[in-house]
Computed example of a mutant assay.
Amino acid sequence: MFRTIESHRVGVPGMFGEGESMWYAVTRYMETHYYHVTVELDGRERRGRYALMVDDERLLQRVLVTQSDDAYVKSIQVVTPGHMNGSGDWKMEPLEYALVGHDAHDCSVSVLTVGSGLVYHTARDEAFDVSSLADRTLIFQPSMIRPNAD
């Protein structure tokens, strides 16, 4: 999850729209992965791009399912902590596939394939095997990205 600090707020609550606030910074204390989603706005009233940082696969799935001609996903990067990607530091890479399932202990596990072909997972078991996951749900695959119309 992301954490905000009131002194980092821009303006006053609601000045950017009902229920919305802008922030100079957000904080992340948990060393878990998240998604950096680029959304294209192509409506008559609003055009441009914005970045949406998503901390949860179900929310990412909802973003993908609710795309429209006016607001659609252009790209998804996954940001992984060093213990997950093996580098010792945070890394942002293009996401190719994401799925969730349950391991032998009925714990939820995320499995992420990045552009280089590497596969990361959130399982605590060192001997984790992706094929052992039960109740697999595909969250993302490349066909869910709108073809580039630029």
Score class of each variant (00 low, 15 high):
residue 138 L to K: 08
residue 85 N to G: 09
residue 127 A to T: 10
residue 58 R to V: 09
residue 125 D to Q: 09
residue 82 G to C: 06
residue 20 E to C: 13
residue 113 T to K: 06
residue 124 R to D: 14
residue 91 K to S: 14
residue 103 D to M: 06
residue 37 V to K: 02
residue 43 G to Y: 06
residue 96 E to S: 12
residue 47 R to K: 15
residue 57 E to W: 02
residue 126 E to V: 12
residue 127 A to L: 07
residue 135 D to H: 12
residue 132 S to I: 00
residue 139 I to L: 08
residue 25 A to Y: 11
residue 62 R to A: 13
residue 122 T to I: 06
residue 115 G to D: 05
residue 36 H to P: 01
residue 99 L to N: 01
residue 24 Y to P: 04
residue 105 H to W: 12
residue 22 M to K: 15
residue 104 A to Q: 10
residue 59 L to Q: 12
residue 31 E to G: 13
residue 114 V to C: 07
residue 131 S to A: 11
residue 19 G to Y: 10
residue 89 D to R: 12
residue 37 V to P: 06
residue 31 E to P: 11
residue 131 S to Y: 05
residue 128 F to M: 04
residue 39 V to A: 03
residue 82 G to Q: 01
residue 63 V to G: 03
residue 112 L to A: 01
residue 26 V to I: 14
residue 139 I to E: 03
residue 18 E to F: 14
residue 20 E to H: 13
residue 116 S to F: 03
residue 48 G to T: 05
residue 117 G to C: 07
residue 121 H to W: 08
residue 84 M to W: 02
residue 125 D to P: 01
residue 75 S to V: 06
residue 59 L to M: 11
residue 95 L to H: 00
residue 134 A to H: 11
residue 22 M to G: 13
residue 124 R to M: 10
residue 71 A to M: 09
residue 76 I to Y: 09
residue 55 D to F: 07
residue 105 H to D: 12
residue 66 T to N: 13
residue 126 E to I: 10
residue 56 D to I: 03
residue 89 D to H: 08
residue 130 V to L: 09
residue 118 L to I: 08
residue 55 D to M: 05
residue 53 M to Y: 15
residue 100 V to A: 06
residue 70 D to L: 12
residue 132 S to W: 05
residue 97 Y to D: 09
residue 97 Y to P: 03
residue 29 Y to T: 10
residue 76 I to F: 09
residue 80 T to I: 03
residue 36 H to D: 15
residue 65 V to S: 13
residue 113 T to Q: 06
residue 66 T to L: 14
residue 37 V to I: 11
residue 104 A to R: 11
residue 124 R to T: 13
residue 74 K to I: 08
residue 122 T to S: 15
residue 46 R to W: 15
residue 40 E to C: 12
residue 119 V to R: 09
residue 117 G to E: 08
residue 39 V to G: 04
residue 23 W to A: 05
residue 122 T to G: 12
residue 102 H to Q: 09
residue 44 R to C: 08
residue 123 A to C: 10
residue 90 W to I: 05
residue 104 A to Y: 03
residue 97 Y to V: 11
residue 97 Y to H: 14
residue 18 E to T: 11
residue 42 D to A: 15
residue 103 D to N: 13
residue 88 G to F: 10
residue 17 G to T: 08
residue 16 F to C: 06
residue 59 L to K: 13
residue 35 Y to D: 02
residue 47 R to S: 09
residue 40 E to S: 12
residue 123 A to P: 04
residue 59 L to S: 10
residue 69 D to E: 15
residue 95 L to D: 04
residue 133 L to I: 01
residue 112 L to G: 00
residue 73 V to E: 04
residue 117 G to V: 03
residue 23 W to K: 04
residue 40 E to H: 10
residue 25 A to H: 09
residue 116 S to Q: 00
residue 83 H to E: 14
residue 65 V to D: 14
residue 68 S to M: 07
residue 104 A to G: 04
residue 88 G to A: 07
residue 41 L to E: 13
residue 44 R to G: 14
residue 130 V to W: 05
residue 131 S to L: 04
residue 138 L to T: 08
residue 108 S to Y: 01
residue 78 V to S: 00
